[in-house]
């Protein structure tokens, strides 16, 4: 996983409540048993004129050339709700998004972000809305900075917004750690706990 420290980038506003993972990547775009090849399906239902087609819908913000190279997504309340499909996050990451700023995230989607190097930044609704307005003035110049180390977002106008993220997620993202490797270091502890637990709850162990 690619470490994340500081990122200054074009931010793409999609500040709508309850954007679900079916919208982020429709099920029909998940055609192979793979974590790759998903970027083209990102927001397919809104991004293209027809189902399954690739003719861009010029009204959708992702197709607006002013947002080319966007690596930060500005979202609404309960972002990433719905299906647990990690394909939504794989598609966002493959497209180039490294951070999402939203008032709240659906819990499974948020966990998937952390496991794939995308920083889920929770900011108050007003702050996200304000940043979206500032960005829209001239997207390629009005850049946003996400500083994970200092847990700080800098808006295009220079205004700063601090955010909180649990230490575990912050460490994983900062250093690009693999959670499985980290946990396997505790294998003896896990086996010890399982052995004890087998005596207490034998019905769990089939």
């Amino acid at each position: 996983m690619q470490p994340f420290t500081v990122l200054t980038a074009v931010a793409l506003p999609l500040v709508r409540a309850n954007i679900d993972t079916d919208a982020i990547i429709p099920s029909r775009e998940m055609t192979s048993v793979s974590k790759k090849g998903l970027a083209d399906g990102l927001f397919a239902g809104w991004r293209y004129r027809t189902v399954g087609g690739r003719d861009p819908n010029p009204d959708f913000v992702l197709n607006d050339p002013r947002y080319r190279g966007a690596a930060i997504l500005l979202g609404g309340e309960n972002f990433g709700c719905g299906s647990s499909r990690e394909h939504a996050v794989w598609a966002l990451a493959e497209y180039g998004f490294r951070a999402i700023l939203a008032p709240s995230f659906n819990p499974i989607f948020r966990g998937n972000c952390v496991r794939n190097g995308i920083v889920p930044v929770e900011l108050p609704q007003d702050a996200v809305a304000w940043i979206a307005v500032a960005v829209a003035e001239m997207p390629p110049a009005q850049l946003v900075t996400v500083d994970l180390e200092h847990q700080m977002v800098t808006a295009p106008d220079g205004g700063t917004h601090s955010f909180t993220i649990e230490p575990e997620a912050r460490e994983m993202l900062l250093h690009g750690l693999d959670a499985i490797d980290l946990t396997l270091l505790r294998q003896a502890e896990i086996q010890g706990k399982r052995q004890m637990d087998k005596d207490c709850r034998p019905w769990v162990y089939l």
Binding site: K35, I108, T183, Q187, R194
Partner: peptide
């Protein structure tokens, strides 16, 4: 009982545990 992503599923399968907030 809760829903997770595929990467978290790999973690649960490999280690018998999850790191949970």
């Amino acid at each position: 009982a809760w829903g997770i992503g595929s990467t978290e599923a790999e973690h649960a399968l490999a280690t018998g545990t999850l790191r949970v907030r």
